[in-house]
Every structure is written in structure tokens, then in C-alpha cells.
Nucleic acid binder design. Sequence first.
DNA 1: CGGTCGCTTGATAATCGTCAATTGATGTGG
DNA 2: CCACATCAATTGACGATTATCAAGCGACCG
Lengths: 255, 255
Amino acid sequence: MKRQPIPPQFRSHHPHPCDGRLPPGLPAELQQQVTELAASTVELNRGETLAHSGTAFDHLYLVLSGAFKAVKLGADGASQIVCFYEPRELMGLSGFSHRVYTTDLVALAPSVVCEFPVQAIESAVSHNRPLLDGLLAAVSESLERAELDQFILGSLTAPQKMACFLLHMQARRRRCGDDTHHFELPMTREELGSYLGLTMETISRLLSHLQAEGVAQIDKRQVHILRDDLLHVWREGGVDLPMPRRKKPQQLKFA
Amino acid sequence: MKRQPIPPQFRSHHPHPCDGRLPPGLPAELQQQVTELAASTVELNRGETLAHSGTAFDHLYLVLSGAFKAVKLGADGASQIVCFYEPRELMGLSGFSHRVYTTDLVALAPSVVCEFPVQAIESAVSHNRPLLDGLLAAVSESLERAELDQFILGSLTAPQKMACFLLHMQARRRRCGDDTHHFELPMTREELGSYLGLTMETISRLLSHLQAEGVAQIDKRQVHILRDDLLHVWREGGVDLPMPRRKKPQQLKFA
DNA sequence: CGGTCGCTTGATAATCGTCAATTGATGTGG
DNA sequence: CCACATCAATTGACGATTATCAAGCGACCG
């Protein structure tokens, strides 16, 4: 993990490490003000932890490249990934209340982040209305996303969860103007399973099934979505997880 | 649903509807400033919806009495309760990003809330640092809670979920200085099941089991916690859901 | 080249959902 | 005031979804 301070005199100059890596759809004027708050960049290798759950909340982090997971540790040793982060996303937003990080933030790949001191952010935000609105929107959006994940974890079957996940990956790409039909998964099957409340084996079977049905082509971590329409059918519950089982369950609803 | 405006000249006077019903642990000076932002009170009957998912985000709501659920509707008709609210809690915080409510807010019992216009809040917050910190902390705390719920939904067994829920109810009471060993559940078994990602039947069995083991006494919706220690054992996974089954599963781990 | 890691696939089984029957509480209209 | 319907809840029997256990394979690395 290598930290590289950004000297104040360079913070408003191009090229700046955050250029083109701020959250999409940000007013040009705001972009300038945000980059001026950046204190350092940090480079991490795969597996390194940027912030530890329970330690002092003193920075927000913007992902510049690579990917991260937010891991929540249970009392007994159970753990759950509650969020994945990709470039242009902001990490650490759940710390404002208790002033500690609420999850571990761990790099899934060699990554670079930009570090924003919480103090600087809070003071900038307190006399800059657009910046305030942006920060509130960011925290609020994370909350909205977490509520959606609650829905996914609590109400959907395994195939539905997988379809939701893939459609979410597409939506992310769309926001950045990227190709939505091909992307690379930054996480292992096990990590994806943790996030979706499933096991590695179930994830593997689901991906195999997607491939077998021609919904997507999957090679290692490379994913090509071939049939968006079928993916939506999966999400609405039109498909079952195929286990090595021979009989079809009856589909009796109100006739 | 009956709305009762609070005329501006009364907003800074006692008695005020919010008195003693603001979030616990708020500096006295802030309490005054918050009450001045209150625009109306709203009374609801059981089952009435205070805010509809997808409609314009124009108020935050403070629960004064009663209780609420936040319901997320899935595309196909599935639905999930993502949060319960009790007096002194703030609802609607996930709307700042997309400017619409992200869940339905439905009264679980006859309730009264206090309505804060988002516009007034945002402008007050932009030139009042303590108020800003309070709002950020509130949104951030909701996010923290949602992440914890993700952990519960994704990583715990049914008995662990139930124990977590009961312990959370206790913690809520503790924050308000109430008795933590007796409380009333404001929701039906089905609603609790939705929140925990379980069915009504499983909830019922779990409550019966808690009673049979002497962990708690349960009469309708009245809960008396008798053995906190056992409840913690439940949370750490020391108990199974007892179905009408006769054989004990083996407990083989790494020896 | 041995070892670990990520992944796949199969066989088996447990947890929890589904279906069903019953009870008590609540409310409604005749 | 009493059928009658409806709803919340309890309990039992059964079974499907998905976890667990196990074996094997390729890739990467020291």
C-alpha cells in the first residue's frame, strides 16, 4: 500500500489523478471543487485493506482504478460482503454517524484510490451548497442501494439474485457510457456468493446454467451478455436453479 | 390521514409536538432549531401509507408515536420490508439522491408523525454546521443499519436472525432509557418474516421455541426477555430451528 | 514440481418454505 | 346479539431449494 500526497499547489492543476474518474454526471464546476479536496492517492495490491472496520473514520475514498469489497465481520467469525465498488464510486460513507468505518475495505485487484480528508469535506460542504447536495445525494444513494440489496437478499431465489447482479453490472457500465454486454467480474465466485447470500458452488452452477441456456457466455471472469431478454425472465423468477435432479417440480398456482 | 399545520409563530414555542420525541442524545441547542423546521403533524390509522415509493421526495418524517414499516416493491409483485421505525426515528432519508421516495412508508398502528419540508431542511443545513452534521449522521446511520441488515439476511440462520432482531429491539429501548426486558412488537408475524427473509410460519415456530426454552415469554405481541445470556447464545449460532424432526445433525468441524 | 487457489461438477442432506387444518380474536351486518 | 367472514397465529406433514461434503482439474507460484 503506497500513499502519494498531492501537494496543495497541484490540486487545482491538470493533469490531476481524479480527472475523468469522478462520479458520472457531475457538473463541471463541481468537478474542480472536488479535485481540490483530494489529499493523496493510495495504491494497493490485491488483498490489501484500505480501511479497517472500527478504526477512526478520517477519509472518504474515491476509486480511481481497480475494485473493492466492503466486508462486514460478524461476532462469531461469519462475514458478509455488503458492497462492491468500481472506479468512480465513493467508499466510506457509512462512517459519519459513529466516526468509525463500519466495514473493511479490501482491494479485489491492484487498485488506486483518491483520499479525501473527512474534515476538509465537512468544512467545504458546510459553505458550499452544491457540494453539500452532492454529498447528501451520495450517502443517500448508498442507502438506496443497500435497501435494494436487502430486497435481493430477503426476497429472491438464487437465479433471480444472479440475474439482478448481472443487470446491475450492466447498469453500472451504462452510467459510464461503456459497452454493457461485456465486462469482467472483479471478484471470485466465493466473494460473489457472499454478497448474494449464496455459496461458491451455487454461483458456479448458476453461471454454468446461464452459459448452457445461451443467456451469457462466461469464460473465467469474462462475461458476455447474449440475451438481455432472457436475463429479465430470470430476474422475474421464470427459471429454477438446475441441480442434478431429474423430476420437474409442479408449478401449481391459483388456476 | 389527517394533516395539522404548525403555524410558524408556534414553531418555537412550548408545548411543541416534537418535545421529548427527537432523536435521543441531541444537544439541547439543536433541539430548538429542529423543532423550528417542523411544518405539520400528520395522524395516520393502521395501514395508511404516509409516502409512496416513486413519488416526489418533499418531506422527511419524524415518528412521534406509533410505528411504521418501509416496504420495497419488486417488479413482479414480491415485496420486502427493509426497515421498521419507532418513535424518535427519522424516515425518508434515502430520497436525497433521486428525489423520490424509495419505499412505501406504512403505519403499523395508529401513529403521529412530524413533517419536515426537505427544502427547509436543506437550506437550514447549508448554513448551520451542527445541523448539517446531525443530518449527515442520520443518513449515514441508516446506511450503517442497512448494511447490518444485509449481513443478517445474507449470513445468519433463522434462529440467529430472530435473536438479532430481539437484541436490536432491546438496544432501541436502551437508547431511550426504557425498560429493555419488556416490549410490544408493533408488527405481525408476517411482517417480521418479511423483514428477516423468513415466512410467517418460521417466525411463529421460533417464538414458540424461545418460549419453550425459557428464553422469553411471549403473549401475542407482548415480549418479555427472560434470559439475555441465552439470547446471545442464539445469536452466535448455538441453537437450531426445531422442526418436527427427530434426529440430531452431527456437529463435525475441524477436530 | 509440489502446493495452494479458484473453479466445476456430483451426491447427499438440512433448513426452511409450502400446503393444510385449526383456533381465537375482531369486526360486520342482518 | 348472534351467525358469518376475515385475519393473525399456531402447529404438523412434506418437500424443494440450496448448503455441505467430496473429488478432480487447471493455473499460478515459490
